[in-house]
Amino acid sequence: MASSTTGRVVAVTGACTYLGGELLRRLEEDPRYGRVLALDIRPPALAPGGKTEFIKIDLTQPTIDGELATLLERHAVDTFVHGAFLSHPTHASDWAHELEDVGTMHVLNACAGVEPRRLVMISTTLVYGAHPKNPNFLTEDAELRGHRDSRFVNDKVRAERQVQRYAKEHPRVEVAVLRFAPILGPTVSNLYTRFLARPVALVMMGHDPLMQFVHEQDAAFALQRAVESHATGAFNIVGKGVLPYTTVLALLGRVPIPMPQLVARQLTKVLWTTQIVGSPPSFLDFLLYLCVADGARARRELGFSARLSIKRTILDFLGIPPDDGAIDIAGAHA
């Protein structure tokens, strides 16, 4: 690789995730970035001859932090984007813990040795957890309560706490954490898209919390903004508007199956243990209580506000074009 390092150098972990891939694509087109390192365990789809270079990094390896540190030093990485997180709960929860919690530790160890100018972490609003006491709009200052028995969420909470501690100990590094609302769109795959893809969906009888989504293009744009800007701290990246869960299902044409809580919990437990469905019993709390975040801070300090409403996002997930037949997705962030 020719080291024509004029411009910024960005390293991206989790390059094969949706957000990672979108970020690589956007950085590739931007002349301000001299070099992009795509770190993952398998190569992402890269345009040939570009400035992006794939380097195989497995964050579950016990001594990967040293390797990362040499990498950061050798390439003089200026911005580190940490996005190696699972978008979907897995039964291999030990491995997930190694990747998310311990993997973040490795990343932070490396960044403590060789301080990059900027560290951006990708998180979700699920870290707030769905609790009966949640206010309608959770701000970034809200406590990260996670979920009582969801390792999927709690690993992310632990990773975020580590990053917060790192930010406190290394004031010279600009640390930004992006908490994305559930991302929906035609290409992204995560817990929510898989859940909403099924023709039938579980509804907790008599409960209908408000839900919030962010369109995949909006999310990718927010990540790009976060890499560009100098803003530090946590930011909720959310879409425009909220809708009740059953209205989301109605818009999608899914058949709601209302169930009393007790039955639903037992059933999901059985289905999860037998690996028939991919959403664990703890996910039911997100169908019971609010977990909606407030995006005002990202609008103020990051200059990001979602362009697509929740209804448009849901219809785009379904493949229904806007009324005028135009494709408003791409033009949205010009």
Partner: peptide
């Protein structure tokens, strides 16, 4: 048809507080 039926009696826009 199910989709049209399911949207009966509910609006596709709610305010911030539901």
């Amino acid at each position: 048809r199910w989709r049209a039926l399911a949207m009966w009696g509910r609006s596709d826009v709610v305010d911030d507080f539901g």
